[in-house]
Write a protein that binds this DNA or RNA. Structure first.
Length: 502
RNA sequence: GCGCGUGUAGCUCAAUGGUAGAGUACCACCUUGCCAAGGUGGCUGUUGCUGGUUCAAGUCCAGUCGCGCGCUCCA
């Protein structure tokens, strides 16, 4: 078993070597946090998206699709809270080079006998009040002050005044003077719409696809013939100016999301709906080849919830670099529709015919990153193994998502009957499936080349096909076993394996 | 954004300040009756980029970009 970093390295290497993922703008030295998908990566990624759309939109009666723009009216982000909240106020300690989130760094003046003798600082945790009081006592002793110590009242660093920045000690060194003022990093990419580059033209690239759904809620309700409960699904690019992108395509600045806003009545039991969606998403992951034992749940603690959320559970995946979020399933209540209704002045409510009640629906939001599913599939599928003394690299991708569904080979290429028959089968299969044709090199080498890119079946036309009309051999990627099928049977066989509709 | 490390052929890696190489992959042809066989030939580099030191830089120095790890961050 390879060490985690080795496994990631091998996977990144394979991605580059075989055309799954390239770093973006590579000829200019690359661009941190941006990745391009090569010929095989584009296939795999599209197959993931297609499977998701099929399963959640086409095969359900209660979810409809949407494709909204990447740039919305800027007020969208005011209403959603992103302009005010999608930021990380950060503080640096110039001496220790440590970086803190300003809203997690707390400070208080130490007041003895009505005189401020200095400041203490602590990092946010349960015991920070006690720690701050101890520090204050210590400071009082050090300065040999007499008198009553006034109660320590902690405030976070975002509330510090300019005069206080220089007086608050760094938690790392305990000495004042090394902390910078809090600096705000809004993670939305800004651009300008139209010719004028002034404040009135500022717009943002969406940091999530969700808001495109909310601002179209009324349109869909008015035209979509939907009945509560129902969902609106959307796939598309989103952009976040991450301070520090890491772990290959896991956290990038341009990425793709697949989100559903599933609207329910406020009278409905949202906890049940939430739980059902978590189950549904787990099942979907399993169905496309992500094993259940690598998935786990992380319910966000109540006090850490984002401003919109009544409850959020992350579906975590065991990546080689650690257990990380694959999907978030959030119960957003009626926060978003209420916000957009209030800010826009438009009605965002639902009229229930049976109860004659009018209300703003609540929503459950399963939100998953395509790139993360891509990486989860690759890390699950990647195997190095020994076959008859030789190292074999194989991607055990399920047929439904594999870039090529099958490869067609003539056993040898110097016998025209075999080559012609193989080419004919290739052309026939290509009308229905993405298949690959390869005549160059020994047959074993050709099998191995396909193993490495996850092609589940190798179809070989051999002498028996020609001489005895014995059909073709179908070689399975994972077991190396071969079966003989007629060419007609091969079409049905692939249809069954690829589309899974048995 | 900070610190440490790192960057040579598509990939894995060599090369004491002195002519940039190997393996592999890839392409063509030959050979080949099922798991990376063999033969012949071919392709592959502004040594990440920009500047500096030097008679001479892949090698030393500075800056910059990318990557890895740690801190930090992560709706």
């Amino acid at each position: 078993m390879a060490a985690p970093t080795d496994k990631m390295e091998s996977i990144i290497n394979l991605c580059k070597r075989r055309g799954f993922v390239f770093s973006s703008s590579e000829i200019y030295g690359g661009l941190n946090g941006f990745f391009d998908y090569g010929p095989l990566g584009a296939e795999l990624k599209n197959n993931i998206k297609q499977a998701w759309w099929q399963d959640f939109v086409h095969r359900r009666d209660d979810i409809v699709g949407l494709d909204s723009t990447i740039i919305h009216h800027p007020t969208t982000w005011k209403a959603s809270g992103h302009i005010d909240n999608f930021t990380d106020p950060l503080v640096d300690c110039k001496e220790s080079k440590m970086r803190y989130r300003a809203d997690q760094l707390f400070f208080a003046p130490v007041i003895v006998a009505s005189e401020t003798i200095g400041y203490v600082s602590v990092l946010e945790d349960e015991s920070m009040q006690t720690k701050a009081e101890e520090l204050a006592q210590e400071l009082k002793r050090k300065l040999a002050r007499q008198g009553a110590l006034e109660p320590i009242q902690l405030k976070d660093y975002t509330q510090a005044t300019e005069a206080q920045y220089a007086l608050i000690p760094s938690p790392a060194t305990g000495k004042p003077g090394s902390l910078t003022p809090p600096r705000s990093f809004n993670m939305m990419f800004q651009t300008y719409v139209g010719a004028m580059q002034d404040a009135s033209a500022v717009a943002y690239l969406r940091p999530e696809t969700a808001q495109g759904i909310f601002i179209n809620f009324k349109n869909v309700v008015d035209t979509g013939r939907v009945k509560l409960p129902f969902g609106i699904a959307q796939m598309g690019k989103a952009f976040r100016n991450e301070i520090n992108p890491r772990n290959f395509i896991f956290r990038s600045r341009e990425f793709e999301q697949m989100e559903i806003e599933y609207f329910i009545s406020p009278a409905a039991d949202w906890k049940t709906a939430h739980r059902e969606w978590i189950e549904g998403c787990l099942n979907w992951f399993e169905s496309i080849g992500i094993p259940r034992d690598k998935l786990s749940l992380y319910p966000h603690p109540q006090e850490k919830l984002a401003h919109y959320s009544k409850g959020t559970t992350d579906i975590m995946f065991e990546f080689p670099f650690g257990v990380q979020e694959l999907q978030g399933v959030a119960a957003r209540g009626d926060f978003d529709l209420t916000q957009h209704s209030q800010v826009s002045g438009q009605k965002m409510d639902w009229f229930d015919e049976s109860t004659k009640a009018r209300f703003i629906p609540h929503v459950i939001e399963p939100s998953v990153g395509v790139d993360r599913v891509f990486l989860a599939l690759l890390t699950t599928a990647y195997h190095e193994e020994e076959v008859e003394g030789e190292k074999r690299i194989v991607l055990r991708l399920p047929a439904r998502v594999a870039p090529y569904k099958a490869a067609v080979f003539p056993l040898v290429k110097n016998k025209p009957e075999i080559v012609e028959r193989a080419e004919a089968l290739y052309r026939r299969l290509k009308k229905r499936f993405n298949v690959f044709y390869d005549a160059s090199g020994a047959i074993g080498r050709r099998y191995r080349r396909q193993d490495e890119i996850g092609t589940p079946y190798g179809i070989t036309i051999d002498f028996e096909t020609i001489e005895k009309g014995a059909g073709v051999t179908v070689r399975h990627r994972d077991t190396l076993e071969q079966v003989r099928l007629s060419e007609d049977e091969v079409v049905r066989f692939l249809d069954e394996k690829v589309n899974g509709l048995v």
